[in-house]
Design a binder for these strands. Structure first.
Lengths: 232, 232
DNA sequence: CCTTGCCTGATTGTATACAATAATACAAGA
DNA sequence: TCTTGTATTATTGTATACAATCAGGCAAGG
């Protein structure tokens, strides 16, 4: 995993709440819990070997992420995400990544630009060698650099949230198809647009980059992953 | 207040956690706590007359909203929002409201359309009478209808979050200037575009509507609200 | 047979007790 | 004087106990 948001990761690793939160999110997104299924605090706690307190805190976060719905004095119910939700997220991300690329064009630092160039260069190398694991890693990092370069705390926060959200799905598709190299070429395009100071172009390319990623994902089995839950 | 997200509101009203969460958010956004100020669980708890448990749960939510940063085993620190953050939010919202209007054009139901028409009609009446309170109310509701009409759980969730986020600032400006009537005319424009099935136009108008709202806010004293904190 | 009221169990909401961790102060040694 | 180690204290992390609330069953009355 990349060094995305170190503090958050430390939390996740060392605190029970973080572990519960991550695992529940993973389980919900991966479909372990059916839609509308009730999550009981003690049951989850026992399953993970912790008390109710960290479970409750994790619930509150999951609610804010929209993954569960908490009805006061009643219970927590899984919301889950449908195939359409994933599509919507990608459409939203498309717009926001575009805006991000535009802002990055204006605010990127020399260091960030250098890291981005190195990233793309390295990715081209690994793409040639077929190192899918490293490619996925570099892809994540590319977007993180872009998020940081836009110099907007709010936008960065939003995009990182979405990125996390779709990470599992995307990782699967990135390493199971030949999207890697194509994605990479698009990264270079965005990089060049930013370097040349063409914000309009950068936005347009970033827009399209997301849409391409989504289309590729649909072609390569998103359907299989989600169709089951869709019918519940 | 509108009947925005009834369940959430019930939570906020009847649970200690909800009250703590709301009040802390209010206090942070209104500038009661300085940036980087540490929030201690017991202190907040005593101030509000509750124990640490609901405070902690509220903290976890605030962290996810980006209003505070929690460092494990150390403390919770206020992030706050700067004048630039507000601007960024409006730019992001501009894009997303545009997308929302486009989708609403495709998915709006007859009932929603009727409520929207009634809303705009009523707003024009109150605008003529100078009823600023009702105008603000109807403005909120107009956007909520739009969010629901886009038929996208994800987008609706995002936009409602942002809407909440800027509510205090906006309410202040809406009721203190003559933005109301202008805003209203723009609402009618969006409504007509949706009714005529012109998604492109609806998107464009919603985009511009947000930008106008922001510009008006800047002209009318956002600066005063935030400049103090900006310098800390 | 249906309805209404209460009672009981289950579950969440909150408070508090205890454990783990980090910050600080201070003293001992170089 | 500066550094380093340690002890103390404050604060968060977790578990658990208790209170409030809700759902469902069951019996009494119509």
């Amino acid at each position: 995993m990349s060094n995305y948001d170190v503090k958050q990761e430390v939390t996740d690793k060392y605190s029970l709440r973080g572990r519960v939160f991550n695992r529940l999110r993973e389980d919900i997104l991966s479909g372990k819990y059916a839609e509308h299924e009730e999550l009981k605090e003690v049951a989850i706690g026992e399953e993970m070997g912790v008390s109710r307190t960290p479970v409750r805190e994790a619930f509150r976060q999951l609610e804010l992420e929209g993954l569960i719905q908490i009805i006061p004095n009643k219970g927590a119910y899984v919301t889950g995400i449908t195939e359409k939700d994933v599509k919507d997220i990608y459409m939203i991300r498309s717009l926001l990544e575009g805006l991000c690329a535009r802002w990055a064009t204006e605010h990127i630092t020399k260091e960030q630009l250098e890291e981005m160039e190195e990233n793309v260069y390295l990715a081209e190398f690994h793409a040639g060698k077929g190192h899918l694991e490293q490619l996925a890693e570099l892809d994540n990092r590319f977007h993180d650099i872009l998020y940081e370069a836009c110099d907007s705390k709010m936008l960065e926060h939003q995009l990182k949230d979405f990125h996390q959200y779709v990470l599992r799905v995307r990782k699967k598709t990135l390493s199971s198809t030949n999207r890697g190299p194509k994605s990479n070429a698009e990264h270079r395009g965005i990089l060049e647009a930013i370097k040349s100071g063409d914000g309009d172009l950068a936005e347009k390319l970033a827009n399209q980059h997301m849409i391409n990623a989504y289309n590729n994902m649909v072609r390569n089995g998103l359907h299989e992953i989600y169709e089951q839950r869709e019918k519940i």
